[in-house]
Design a binder for these strands. Sequence first.
DNA 1: ATGACGTGAGTATCACGA
Length: 256
Amino acid sequence: MKIATWNINSVRARVDRLVAWLKAQAPDVLCLQELKCTNEQFPRAEIEACGYRAEVFGQKTYNGVAILSRAEVGDVQRGLNDGVDDDEARLISATFNGVHLIGLYAPNGQEVGSPAYAYKLEWYARLTRVLEQRYQSDQALLLCGDFNVAPDDLDVWDPRYFADKTLFTRPEREAFKKLRDSLGLVDAWRTLHPDLKAFSWWDYRLLAFPKNTGLRIDHFLLTPSLMARCKASEIDREARKGKQPSDHAPVWVELT
DNA sequence: ATGACGTGAGTATCACGA
């Protein structure tokens, strides 16, 4: 079973790329982030024409997440549903083949010290509480998506330059670690590539992709029992090439 | 100069991304 995640940075601007990638990679599940469209604007017909269903949690202009799958998913929930007043479409969860899936788009945080930065840290704390309240570490649970945090030095092209920059500040990395530790979750790609310096996002500016000045911020977090079934995980750097790409590459895991 | 691009909204320029 192949499960993928991709921050597509506007699904309407890239529907042709999306369809081509689904046909080429044939994942069983693809979690999408940054749809930048409402449920009504989502290109459902094109997705269904290539054999996928779509559970969509859209929002006008910003955010928006979806779960595409070859077979029907169960128990779909949109949002954290933790009682906090929050209308940002950043999380969708479902079950598929006995696996609890959570597809998420964590807040970016803008500048350190800004309201958006505080919201990001609070959002991580809320998600951690939700995991602790609703799941157990012995379940088959998988979180994937754009976490907007580079966890370690190896995940940043220049850790010294990023030391006090959003996505790599100590509070963000600690919030990510607390989320991971809540259920003993494992960073699947890093576990399978312990010494590799590779990225999943590159700035559109400054020739960042050809210079490979990127960050690894798109992740799969698995409970230990699910990690035992994970034999492969890769970042599809090819999908960042060519005309009008998303600034993120897709990431996938293969589960036995 | 670690230097500025892409998207949606709306129709000039701004908010936002990371």
